[in-house]
Design a binder for these strands. Structure first.
Lengths: 226, 226
DNA sequence: TCGTAGTTTTACCAATTGGTCAAAAGTGAT
DNA sequence: ATCACTTTTGACCAATTGGTAAAACTACGA
């Protein structure tokens, strides 16, 4: 409706497979145009509602209304409330981690990290719903995404941490605990999305994003310069 | 049950006043020992439940069970679910802002700020429930505490910002946007409570608090040194 | 010991909510 | 136009949940 939005139509809900009679080679039933459209609508609506109210606070009726579909119709496309939520989380995980994947071990260390921070800031302002969705989930103990932490997040983080550590050891940046450096980047950047209600009342609503970037660039440049 | 906990018995629920026949001068009905005890129990239980599930995710039954009281008994002490939540939020607000109030404009600037950061870190690890309670509330747009942002938080923050700004102008610390500096302190410190589920899987569970402090001290010392 | 105010429980709503089901309404290839 | 298939809807549950009413119990000063 408003935002161009991250792609929400990749995810194939688990009900589709169950619904379609699985012929021997028919691995991908190829969802119809209607299916693609409605699935995307539902996920977009669900992102709105889940990110604003959390999992338990969100209702199927809200999602249905937001999506412009009836509740039973939504349950025709997804196995249930939890299915929608998990589908969202899984599909968004990769997008969310993309900036970290773009860190180039061969690049100029300080610039790589600063670019990472800037990308995170941009995402925080451009996709606050996604940030809040994750924040809600993690806040409540990551009951539905905890598995992905081990399987997807941890390996990537550990790899990035080793890259940063190597940079530090070669004297390219100041010595620093790489994990806590990453924590601080996540915290400071996502803060603007997750705590927007607070930020909004405390700061003249000029270009908050630009201010944030100026501050964070100085922060990390000073922190990491040798 | 476990933690000594911040004082939870100050707050006088708004039902008490309504219940007790207000004689002319009887301004404070002076709650009985039982009332004090049960009120505190309820608030402590509610802090557990609300901080873990958010407002809508929490149920009175959960709170009742955690408090060791029956649901109607809880409604005897508080006007309703929302009353409990608001009472908690209001009562905790001051405690939560205390570290910022302790910043001494006359003190040594860098040390004052570093002490503030350390206090915030300590609170994040010592009172993660309180941190998550606020995080949940703000994440969902601060519907029940937004008023306090204007009346309580903003004046304090603005005053602190002016202090920091003065320090910078006098060359005591590096020039910095004071609001965003505060945001970054909140974000980096509360991150350890709010995103504990994530931190726990990513970092060897040695003394995370100590690691965090080492990192953040270096971060802000480098950021603010002239 | 008794009476009364304060406290707790039992039984019960009414509204909400996730979900089901079967019938109805498209849709599209032949 | 027809037939098989997909999509949508209306009616309906059962469980959960915030909240109430009134009876039952308890503490405690006179």
């Amino acid at each position: 409706m408003e935002r161009p939005d991250l792609r929400l139509d990749w995810a194939i809900g688990n009900k589709t497979r169950a619904m379609t009679k699985s012929l021997q080679d028919d691995e991908t039933p190829r969802p119809s145009r209607i299916q693609q459209r409605n699935r995307a609508r539902i996920l977009d609506a669900a992102l709105d509602v889940f990110s604003q109210h959390g999992f338990r606070g969100a209702t199927l009726d809200q999602i249905a209304e937001q999506a412009g579909l009836s509740k039973p119709n939504i349950l025709y496309y997804f196995g249930g409330k939890e299915d929608i939520h998990v589908t969202l989380l899984n599909g968004l995980m990769d997008t969310w981690l993309a900036p970290m994947r773009e860190i180039d071990p061969q690049g100029e260390p300080l610039e790589e990290i600063l670019r990472y921070v800037r990308r995170k800031i941009e995402m925080s302002f451009e996709y606050p719903r996604e940030s809040r969705l994750f924040a809600n989930e993690v806040l409540q103990g990551a009951p539905r995404i905890g598995a992905h932490f081990e399987s997807t997040l941890k390996p990537l983080v550990d790899k990035t941490a080793r890259v940063i550590e190597a940079w530090a050891e070669h004297g390219k940046i100041a010595p620093v605990d790489p994990h806590h450096l990453l924590f601080s980047v996540w915290a400071t950047t996502q803060h603007y999305a997750d705590f927007e209600a607070q930020v909004r009342t405390l700061v003249p609503d000029q270009d908050v994003q630009a201010q944030a970037w100026v501050f964070l660039e100085a922060l990390y440049r000073r922190m990491l310069s040798v």
